[in-house]
Design a protein around this nucleic acid. Sequence first.
DNA 1: TTCTCTAAAATTGTATACGATATTTTCAAT
DNA 2: ATTGAAAATATCGTATACAATTTTAGAGAA
Lengths: 221, 221
Amino acid sequence: MSNDENIYRQILRAIVEHQLPPGARLPEDRLSEAFGVSRTGIRKVLQRLALEHFVVIEKNKGAQVNRPSEAEASEILDSRILIEPQLIPTLLMHWDETQSKRFRAMAQEEKQAESANLLADSIQLTARFHYELATLSGNKVLAHFIEQLCYRSSLILAAYGTRGSVGCECGDHTQLLDLLDQKDADKAQHWMSHHLKHIKSSLILESKPEENIDFQRLFGR
Amino acid sequence: MSNDENIYRQILRAIVEHQLPPGARLPEDRLSEAFGVSRTGIRKVLQRLALEHFVVIEKNKGAQVNRPSEAEASEILDSRILIEPQLIPTLLMHWDETQSKRFRAMAQEEKQAESANLLADSIQLTARFHYELATLSGNKVLAHFIEQLCYRSSLILAAYGTRGSVGCECGDHTQLLDLLDQKDADKAQHWMSHHLKHIKSSLILESKPEENIDFQRLFGR
DNA sequence: TTCTCTAAAATTGTATACGATATTTTCAAT
DNA sequence: ATTGAAAATATCGTATACAATTTTAGAGAA
């Protein structure tokens, strides 16, 4: 793996795992020092992260971890609700015992990470479950998009998630695996849709009063 | 608009309009000379174009216009077939006479460009019709994804399109607008699905024998 | 203390330098 | 004429330099 790619993944991981919270600044000097490369390489990955909406770069002010707006959060979840259930029929064509075992192992890990309160692992595994499922559909273009949406969802949880609700409380992913084993496309689709809607509704999408205070409207004549 | 963004759009436009055909090399020196900026700025936009799959960057060999594989072409069209019809119900909620007129004007322009054999305009307008429609759904995240897929579709047409089939022969986009005016979601969805499938089936997805010849398999023991 | 203004430090944006790698050209030998 | 090797050229990857801008720190006045 190229060095750039390596740096990219490390920073992305830190953001997705909430080590770098929304709003955190990412000065190029410190990063270049930390990774032992010049600012050139750092700028390259920051620009990539900005394109992917994990950071925001403001001219002359550098990069900071993106704080997704409520609209963005809503749209990301809506996108997943629209696409992920639709992938299930195609995915089922590739579903066999090998896959079933693989995903059950993942779900198991997830459960353990959650009960051990390993937040970082829990976040990673939850996202991974979804996008590996998407990958199984065989459409790499869509799977990559879903992967991005899953990671952005992790960022959303950092901003709007209720404490401890990294995953979903409505049972767990093994329920979906049962339906897939039964090759019940309809029920599996319905479950996925419900699952994502549940996550969306669990977000606290309330205006954070601290930012974007419109003093003009508040106090202006 | 920032200067980088400007350069980005100009190069993207040249690629999408088939001014720069798949495989064309993009030497940083020439571009920096042409745009009057240093290689730094050029590299920035080339890296962005690479992330968006419009160009491919090979280590120490620079960038060239991407030649989408058959698999990639197929997946992009499949993604559009999956998503775009699904956007229609949401889109219809925002459909009114203003929009109808706007899109009819666009369809008209399209027809004119096509009959005048203005390939570049024709390509742009066809793509724009689709992603502006997606934008109307209100979901910017999805609309942006569709926009990218539309542009990549233009690149696909450059590689696999039958001569003169930039658009779709099955009538034209005004048919869809009629259905939208009637608020007939079902028929509009069906039309969109058919439209995209037609485009996909019109591609000549045959192995190009010139490249990737496996001499080992051919002649090796 | 609290505010404002100014100087210092930090940080970013862009160009350039230079070693490393790839490509092309040249030219001799078969 | 074709092949192959070697030099010359072109191109890329990375670090660095420097001007422009922002942020921070500090001194003085109310």
